[in-house]
Each structure stands twice: as structure tokens, then as C-alpha cells.
Nucleic acid binder design. Sequence first.
DNA 1: CATCAGGTGAAGT
DNA 2: ACTTCACCTGAT
Length: 267
Amino acid sequence: MIYEEKEKLNIEKIALSGQCFRIRRSAGDPSVWVIQAGSRVLTAHERAEEIVFDCSETEFSAFWRDYFDLGRDYSAIEKALDPADTFLAKAAEYSRGIRILRQDPWEMLITFIISQRKNIPAIASCVEKISSAFGTDAGDGLYAFPTAEQLVGAGDALKNCSLGYREPYVAAASLLVASGETDIYAWEKLPDDELTENLLSFSGVGVKVANCVKLFGYHRINAFPVDVWIKRIIDTKYGGSFPLERYDGFAGIIQQYMFFYGRSMHL
DNA sequence: CATCAGGTGAAGT
DNA sequence: ACTTCACCTGAT
């Protein structure tokens, strides 16, 4: 068993923050969380002030501690905010416990190609469909996120997953990665600008999706995805321009706070 | 039934 | 270079 304070790691907030579509409450017990990453599954019990993971210290240290980015001090982010920025102060406080997960680049690439012009439940539904249809059985009715090879093998069946016009994008990316023509894992060591350029070369990946893949799949925490919510916040709260340069080096964390808080207020 | 949802790519200025 | 528009699909 591993215990973490919710002030430091809040699974519910992360599940609602839009960075991850494979964290769900258990159907039988709403205090139980089922967390999936690639082919891994972790269950957790939520208590008033803490979260308890069903996991040994060895297993937690081997994967999940880094996955939840527990090596970073997020309280330092809050201290670095502009004291005059009351919106950001409220957003950061409201978002306390959110972390930028270290998710898999392939899973993020496909997930965010799917995400365009879809709402969060629809994205989660599509991810669930392709996983259960083509991913490896992980037991208990759960399935791993499908590999590129598995999606290539899906063939026309990929058209039955509500992907709509995004289906050819997913199929093309799968072919590039499965064939070995594109090695997205080798991109881990590229500088930000080259990584961006490479991601944009995928059909169906524009600036916004590339930034999401950078932030959530490659842990480039300076990436700052601008979607309709962030744009709305910048327009209404910042008169159309946000002082990104002030938060150079961790702008992505600021983006998550703004998104999570702004969305909760239905701006 | 029209509109919208965490955009993108192609076509048109 | 910047602006406009169509686009699968499920939900409201």
C-alpha cells in the first residue's frame, strides 16, 4: 500500500483535467479508482485527505512514482505566480493536487488526434472502443491501449469506433509507427522545436494537438496548448494576451491550472 | 432539427 | 501569411 496526500496528488482532479482519459471511478464503488496506463492497471482507494494505492513500494517506485511526476515540487509553482494575478492564484489553489502525468507518447499521439472537435466524454468513449476492440486483454474487463501494430491489424474495423473523419489520420499514424518508418520514442531526446516539427508532420496533428502530445506524452512541461477554453480565458481574463514568458520552463502546469479552473467555472 | 464539442487541412482572399 | 469552411459523430 502506498499513501499520498490529496494536496499533493489528487486523482479526481487529474481525471477531470483532460490530460488523461483512462482514469475512472469503479462502477461498483465510487471511492475506488481504476487507473490505466498503456498495459498497466492500478487501483486506488480515495479517503478524505489521502489516496491509497493497491501497490507495493517496489512496483510504485518502478513506474507509478514517475508517472505521477512525484519527483517535482509543485508547491514551488504556486509561489512563482504573479501575486497581482488573482485569477491564476485562485486557479492554482483550486487545482492543487493536479500533476502533469508522464504518459506514453504513442497513446497520447492517437488520443489527441482523436480529440479534435470532440468533448471529453466522447474522447474517452473512442479511446475505450479502440482499446477493447484491438488492445491486449488485461483481465477484469480491462484492455491495454492498442499498439500501432494492433491498430494496423484492425484494418476496416477501425471505422467502427466513432472516429469519423479522424479514422484515416489514426490509420496513417499507425502505419508509419508500426512499419518502423517513424520512431516516436527516439524523439524523446530531441529539442522542443524539432519534436514539434516532427509531430506536425503527422496528418491530423496541428499546433494544438502537437502541444498536447509534447506536454502529456513527452513531458515537455513548457508546452502550452491553446484550445477553445484557454483562448476564452485569455480573452476574458487577460484582455487577449497572456504573459507566457513569465512562466517559461513550466507554462504547461500553468495551462492545466487555467484549464481545470476555467472549465469548472463554465467561463 | 440546429448547434456544438479541447482542430485540422484545403481553399480562398 | 491570414481567413474561411467543411468535416464524422454523439449529445443537448
